[in-house]
């Protein structure tokens, strides 16, 4: 049977149009409409939606909390990138290069937190940090460092750093697997050649492994940065709600507070635009920064 042109286009429309309509309504329209909302003052409930031009943006630049939220986001980005990459690299190299019998066990265990709900992770770690019952404080007491115990999530200085550990805990597995995939694709002959040249294991790591898995490292870093900027507020919302005294608010949790608890929907949308712009700029800059000639031996 030869299809007529009309039949072909009918089939094409059947495949594409319903999905695209849904996508336009529930994804494209809200994004563009968010941009539009950022120029209005709107409490949501009433019909009075007032066009205010760039007022929300002026307010954004004068809001004292905003620079803190941006700093908190990038603090989480930086600490997560370093923590996850160092640990994931170590684990990936250990599990692939040194023939450890129980390697599959570690792989399965380390990945599991990646598919746990943020709610479960957040609540578990709230208990680990609990001032009276928590593992952290009782552990410190056990090794005689009582003066180091503190209400971790209740302290303005320590609450934000305390959020890093659960994020690393939950994030390592995926990147470990990514890097392991890269390492196992490296041909054994490179290592043999390096050995003949007298390179020790440490040098092999720096000269052979690292350059050859650079693409995977780059992808991992980008992925951590994007997911953190677009989603760090979830763990913040569960564990601290932005407190104490705004010391853990990130851009997303501040947006949630402004829009959905204080009903400043216009201003919330303006914060959303800021998140969009910052994450786009960050990704573009990172791509330039991480560009490195492809290594082939």
């Amino acid at each position: 049977m030869v299809q007529t042109k009309k039949q072909k286009y009918l089939f094409l429309a059947f495949c594409l149009v319903p999905t695209f309509i849904m996508f336009s309504i529930f994804t494209l329209y809200p994004l563009f409409s968010g941009l539009y909302f950022s120029f209005f003052e709107w409490s949501g409930t009433s019909q009075t939606r007032e066009f205010v031009g760039f007022d929300n943006y002026i307010r954004l630049f004068n809001d004292e909390i905003i620079p803190d939220t941006v700093w908190h986001d990038y603090f989480l980005v930086a600490t997560k990138v370093i923590g996850i990459m160092v640990m994931a690299l170590f684990i990936a190299v250990a599990l692939t290069q040194l023939k450890i019998k129980e390697a599959p066990f570690y792989r399965i265990v380390f990945f599991f937190p990646n598919i746990m709900s943020v709610v479960v992770i957040g609540i578990l770690w709230m208990f680990i940090y609990n001032p009276n019952l928590g593992l952290v404080n009782s552990g410190l007491e056990m090794i005689g460092l009582e003066e180091w115990t503190r209400p971790w999530l209740g302290s303005e200085t320590w609450a934000l750093p305390s959020l890093v550990l659960p994020s690393i805990w939950a994030g390592i597995g995926l990147f470990m697997l990514l890097l392991m995939g890269g390492i196992s694709n490296i041909s054994k002959s490179y290592y043999e050649a390096a050995k003949i040249d007298g390179a020790n294991e440490w040098q092999q790591f720096w000269k052979v492994t690292l350059p050859l898995i650079w693409p995977q490292i780059k992808i991992s870093i980008l992925y951590i940065v994007i997911t953190t900027l677009n989603g760090s507020f979830i763990i913040v919302q569960v564990m601290t709600g932005g407190g104490p005294n705004n010391s853990t608010h990130v851009m997303g949790s501040y947006l949630y507070q402004q829009a959905f608890t204080q009903y400043n929907f216009g201003y919330g949308a303006t914060i959303g635009v800021m998140i969009l712009v910052l994450s786009l700029i960050t990704v573009v800059l990172l791509q330039l920064l991480l560009r490195r000639d492809r290594v082939e031996y």
């Binding site: 309504i25 529930f26 994804t27 329209y29 809200p30 994004l31 409409s33 968010g34 941009l35 909302f37 949501g44 994007i226 900027l229 677009n230 507020f233 997303g252 947006l255 829009a259 959905f260 929907f265 919330g268 949308a269 959303g272 635009v273 998140i275 969009l276 994450s279 990704v283």
Partner: peptide, 15 residues
């Protein structure tokens, strides 16, 4: 996949 959907959630709420 890379766009932060948090911006879209406000209009989506009213939609």
């Amino acid at each position: 996949m890379m766009i932060p959907m948090v911006l879209g959630w406000i209009p989506l709420f009213f939609l």
